[in-house]
Write a protein that binds this DNA or RNA. Structure first.
Lengths: 236, 236
DNA sequence: GGCTTTTGTTTCTTTGCGTATCATAATCGG
DNA sequence: CCGATTATGATACGCAAAGAAACAAAAGCC
C-alpha cells in the first residue's frame, strides 16, 4: 500500500489579520498546508479551483457573511468539511451554522489546542470517507495486468513494461476510483502533493502512456477516459 | 432526494435520570433507536455485544468516569463515534475529551437542537465511512439512469452517454428540485456562477439535450417540462 | 563523471463544449 | 383572430481544454 505523506490542506478565511496569521502559523506548525483568504467572494473563487481538506470560516466577514459562503459552497455540491469561527456564541447562531452545512462551530476566543484537535478530527474523518477501496497488489483487467508490488505491468499485447513510481501511483489512484471521475486537483493532491498548478500537461502525458500500454486503440480509449473540464476516469 | 432510512442506533450514557430520559425521548422523536445505560461498566458490556452508530457519553459518572470509558472502548479498536457531555466547560476538559478519543464535546446545559444536529452529523459521517455506497451518486427514474460520480447516464434506449460538466451540474440541480419549477435565474446562479448573465438560449439547449437523452417523445416531454416565462421543471 | 531513466515543461495541434445566431413553432394577451 | 412574446430546433463558431510530441531537467546508476 502506498502511504500518502502529502500534507492536508486547509483554507483559512478570516478578515482580521492578526488572527489569520496566527492561525496560519499554528496550523503550519502542525504540518498543514495553509491558504488564507480575507473575504467572502475570494473564498468561492479559490474553492472552485483548488482542493482543500478543510475550510476554517469566520462568520463575520466584511462583505459576505460566512453562512452565505457556506451555503453557496454546499449548493455547488462541495462536501468539504467546514468549521465555523465566530464571536457569537448563542445557541441560535451555532444551530444556524450547523444547519446551513457547517461541520463544527467554535466560538472566539477559542482554545488553540481544542481547535487543532477538532481540525484534526474533521480532516481524518473526511479522509476516511474518501479513502478508496483497497486494490490488490496484482490487478488484472481487460487491457492488461498490473503488479503494484513488482512495479511492472503486462500491456495489451502481452509485453512486459516497467512502471515508474509516479506511473504506479497514478494508476493506483485511478483504479481505486474505478468507474468514478478523478479530478485533476485530486490527482495532483494525492500523487504529486501540490495544490495549485500552472496549466500543466504533465498528467496528460502519463495518461497518454497508460493508453499506449493498455489501449488497443488509443484514440478511442476503453479504459482511460478523459472527462473534459474535470479529470480522468478509469473503467475496467 | 430519496433516502432509505434504517434507524440509526444511539447509546446514551447518563446517570441522572431526568436528563437521560429527556435525551432518549428527544432522540427517539428524531427517529433514532435509543439504548440507555447509567453507569460506566455497563457501557463496556453493552458496547461489546451491540453495534451503535453513536455513543453519547456523560463524563461525570458515579463509578467510572466517561473519559476512562472512552479510552477503554478505543483500546478495543472500536471507532464508534463518541460525543461527550459534561458540566465542565474549561478548555482543558474539552481538550482531554477530544484527545482521549472523543469526537465531539458538548457542555451542559446544552441546546437541544444543537445536540441533535451534531448527533446527526456524527452519524452521517460515520455511515459514509463504513458504507461509501450508502448514498450512491446514481439516480434512476423512468427515463433512464444517471451516474453523477462517473459522469455518465443511460438514456431511454439503454444507450450509454457521457455527461459534460455543465450537463451534470444542471441535471443535478433539476433533480434536486424534482417536481418544482427552477427559474432561469436560479439555474444561472448555481450552474454558471454569479454575475454571469448570458442572455441566450444556452439553458434551453441543455434542456433539449436532456430531452434527447431521456424522452421517448421529445415533443411531449414527460420529465423535462418548460414553464413558460419562469424556467424548467423535472418530474420523475 | 558520464550514461540512462524518469519526471516536468514548453509548444503546437486538435477537439468538442458552451455559446450565439437565426428561423420557425407554440403560446399568450387583448 | 392577430401581433407580440417566448420556446424550440438546427446550425455555426470561438475558445479553452486535452492530445501529442519534442525538449529540458532531475534523479538514479554504474
Amino acid at each position: 500500500m502506498i502511504r500518502k505523506e502529502t500534507k492536508a490542506s486547509i483554507l483559512v478565511v478570516e478578515d482580521e489579520e492578526s488572527l489569520r496569521e496566527a492561525l496560519k502559523l499554528n496550523l503550519e506548525l502542525e504540518g498543514y498546508e495553509v491558504t488564507t483568504v480575507d473575504n467572502g467572494p475570494g473564498v468561492l473563487k479559490v474553492v472552485k479551483n483548488e482542493y482543500f481538506d478543510l475550510i476554517i470560516l469566520d462568520i463575520m466577514l466584511p462583505d459576505m457573511d460566512g453562512i452565505t459562503v457556506c451555503e453557496t459552497i454546499r449548493m455547488q455540491h462541495n462536501d468539504v468539511p467546514i468549521m465555523f469561527l465566530s464571536a457569537r456564541n448563542t445557541s441560535a447562531d451555532k444551530v444556524e451554522g450547523l444547519k446551513k452545512g457547517g461541520d463544527d462551530y467554535l466560538t472566539k476566543p477559542f482554545n488553540l489546542e481544542e481547535l487543532l484537535l477538532r481540525v484534526q478530527k474533521l480532516i481524518v474523518k473526511n479522509k476516511k470517507i474518501h479513502d478508496p477501496h483497497a486494490v490488490p497488489d496484482v490487478y488484472t483487467f481487460e487491457g492488461g495486468k498490473i503488479d503494484f508490488a513488482a512495479h511492472e505491468c503486462v500491456d495489451h499485447n502481452g509485453g512486459k513494461q516497467e512502471l515508474s513510481k509516479k506511473e504506479a501511483a497514478l494508476l493506483k489512484l485511478l483504479i481505486e476510483h474505478e468507474g468514478q471521475v478523478v479530478s485533476r486537483e485530486h490527482i495532483l493532491q494525492i500523487v504529486w502533493g501540490y495544490n495549485v498548478y500552472p496549466t500543466t500537461r504533465t498528467i496528460d502525458n502519463f495518461i497518454l502512456n497508460f493508453r499506449k500500454y493498455f489501449e488497443a486503440d488509443s484514440r478511442n480509449p476503453k479504459h482511460f477516459h478523459s472527462v473534459r473540464g474535470i479529470g480522468y476516469k478509469f473503467t475496467a
